[in-house]
Design a protein around this nucleic acid. Structure first.
Length: 564
DNA sequence: ATTAGGG
DNA sequence: CCCTAAT
């Protein structure tokens, strides 16, 4: 590329020098082509061949560049001729294709018509040096390209505009050619059309060029495309502004034209490219098989090429989607994503129904007790109510266990005390069963303040380690607290007391970050601590207390606890 | 069945 | 909370 540039410029400069002449010549050539396609075809072959031979498979590859370079070099030596040659080859190729396949179709006339409208903007066989054109010529070229007049006198603008128009013209794209760096590469033909590269000012000329490319590019499709393009040209010239589109899908270009140069420059999507590549692979196969019948296959191939896009669209539709709205935008979302993530909802009430509610007198007592005793605390006696442990659940085994864990806290309302208790009862019942199976996990119940107090009192009364006693006497109402639970809780309390009461953490509740967790009042912790300290040495005391039934009573009293 | 302790 | 060993 880099190497090439210099050469190019040289050639280019020379061209510039002879600009008008060239233009003239080109025009002449063009006309000749139109009039005598056959001749062109004859002339072209050699040059074309060269190009083709070079890299059938590689489109924009380095090879391509190299080739160009070579040509450029040649051109350097003989600037004019070179340029002409290149352009000619390309143009002629296309022309050939066109003429051959499409000739009959009113292509000739149409083109001529267009041509007429397109004054004499220089048509360098495939490459046009807009730089050489006068403003007026550029304007005309513009008209030819966009189908409308322009009063702009800015040469640069005009050139850009025209170039863009050409670049993005449907013709180019549909033809399978890619405009890159002022170079038009024809994928279809798998030969690259040498264009002026590296010269920012050199612009590919419009209509004619496009036509060429189309023709040249698709030896296979050229035929069809050629006709198509020509017709389109006509249409364009007349209807561009109206937005008339050709029957072909490629007609997209028409729309693009209308939309304007800016949009035209849009590059194809990655996906599109990929698709295209795939298609090409397929095409290549097809191509090889039918080199001779290019014309015939042309359409087919074209269609194939187009298909990818359609497929893409169809694909998007393929997946079942639903419309969803995000931030006011409606979006299609695959239904799959809608799948419920959490565990399936569970009607925990069903449990109760299923299991003949095991009403223990104890439960009733418990309830009454709670209501009566706890007073202020009643409400939070059971913060988490729902206990899924049911026979059914048991049957299901571990899975349920997990589920329960997660879903356990569904109910937090205090109102459900009773139910919770029932559940608890059931739980207990189940617990036994489950214990055997070892699958069930007890629903986590946060310890309430009242519970803690009772525990502490109990410990104070009976001494630590008398969990069964404590449970029996102090936790009669809480069926779900086992002696083990009490023991564990006590242990935790001890830890807490040691931790929280330590000077470092003074007043700072480690968990205060979580508002839902009610910190254990330091008072209680203090008591716990005291108890803990006392207990070891209080073996006697405990024994003493134990002995006297009264002592237990005394112990229950608050005052006593404080004392303890 | 309880208790103690580890996890 | 669960699990388990030791009583």
């Amino acid at each position: 590329m880099l190497l090439k540039e210099p050469d190019f410029e040289e050639g280019y400069s020379e061209l510039e020098t002879n600009g008008e002449i060239h233009t003239q010549q080109f025009d002449a050539d063009l006309e000749v082509d139109r009039l005598k396609p056959s001749d062109d075809s004859l002339d072209i072959p050699s040059k074309c061949t060269v190009v083709h031979d070079h890299k059938p498979d590689k489109l924009n590859t380095e090879q391509g560049d190299n080739n160009i370079v070579h040509q450029d070099n040649a051109s350097t030596e003989t600037p004019k001729s070179t340029v002409l040659n290149d352009s000619c080859s390309a143009e002629k190729e296309k022309a050939d294709a066109c003429s051959r396949s499409v000739n009959n179709s009113s292509t000739g006339p149409s083109v001529s018509g267009v041509t007429s409208s397109v004054p004499d903007f220089s048509i360098l066989r495939g490459e046009v040096c807009l730089d050489n054109l006068t403003i007026r010529e550029l304007q005309e070229a513009f008209r030819a390209t966009f189908g409308r007049e322009t009063t702009v006198k800015d040469k640069l603008w005009l050139k850009r505009r025209i170039t863009m128009g050409l670049t993005n013209s449907c013709d180019v794209q549909s033809s399978g050619c890619v405009v890159k760096d002022y170079k038009i590469v024809c994928k279809d033909a798998k030969h690259k059309l040498p264009t002026i590269e590296g010269l920012p000012k050199v612009e590919v000329e419009a209509t004619s060029l496009v036509r060429f490319q189309v023709l040249g590019s698709g030896n296979e499709r050229d035929t069809s495309s050629c006709s198509y393009y020509r017709s389109e040209d006509q249409q364009r010239s007349s209807n561009r502004l109206k937005g008339v589109s050709t029957d072909n899908d490629e007609s997209e270009g028409t729309l693009q034209d209308e939309q304007g140069a800016a949009k035209r420059l849009r590059k194809p999507t990655k996906r599109y490219i990929e698709e295209l590549a795939d298609t090409e692979t397929l095409d290549s196969t097809g191509k090889l098989s039918s080199p001779g019948k290019r014309a015939a296959h042309g359409e087919v191939l074209l269609r194939q090429r187009v298909t990818p896009l359609q497929e893409v669209d169809s694909l998007s539709i393929t997946y079942p989607t639903r419309k969803d709205t995000f931030g006011g935008f409606s979006v299609h979302v695959p239904y799959a994503s809608r799948m419920r993530r959490g565990r399936p909802r569970r009607n925990f009430i069903s449990f109760l129904d299923d299991d003949p509610p095991v009403e223990c007198p104890e439960v009733q007592m418990a309830v009454e007790t709670m209501l009566g005793k706890d007073g202020e605390h009643v409400n939070h006696v059971s913060s988490a109510v729902e206990v899924p442990l049911m026979k059914n659940a048991e049957k299901k085994g571990g899975h349920i266990e997990t589920a329960e864990k997660k879903g356990g806290h569904i109910e937090t309302a205090d109102n459900k005390e009773i139910r919770s208790i029932e559940a608890d009862d059931i739980c207990r019942t189940d617990a036994k069963t489950k214990t055997k199976r070892g699958l069930k996990r007890k629903h986590h119940r946060a310890w309430t303040l009242s519970e803690v107090l009772k525990l502490v009192d109990g410990v104070a009364q009976f001494g630590p380690g008398k969990w069964s006693e404590i449970r029996r006497l102090s936790f009669a109402s809480y069926s779900y607290r086992t002696s083990v639970d009490l023991k564990d809780k006590w242990r935790n309390l001890l830890r807490a007391s040691q931790t929280q009461l330590s000077p470092e953490n003074d007043g700072v509740c480690p968990r205060k970050s979580n508002p839902s967790i009610i910190p254990i009042p330091p008072a209680i912790l203090l008591r716990v601590k005291e108890l803990a300290e006392l207990q070891p040495q209080a073996g006697n005391l405990a024994a003493a207390i134990k002995f006297s039934g009264q002592s237990s009573k005394v112990a229950q009293g608050r005052g006593s606890s404080g004392f303890l």
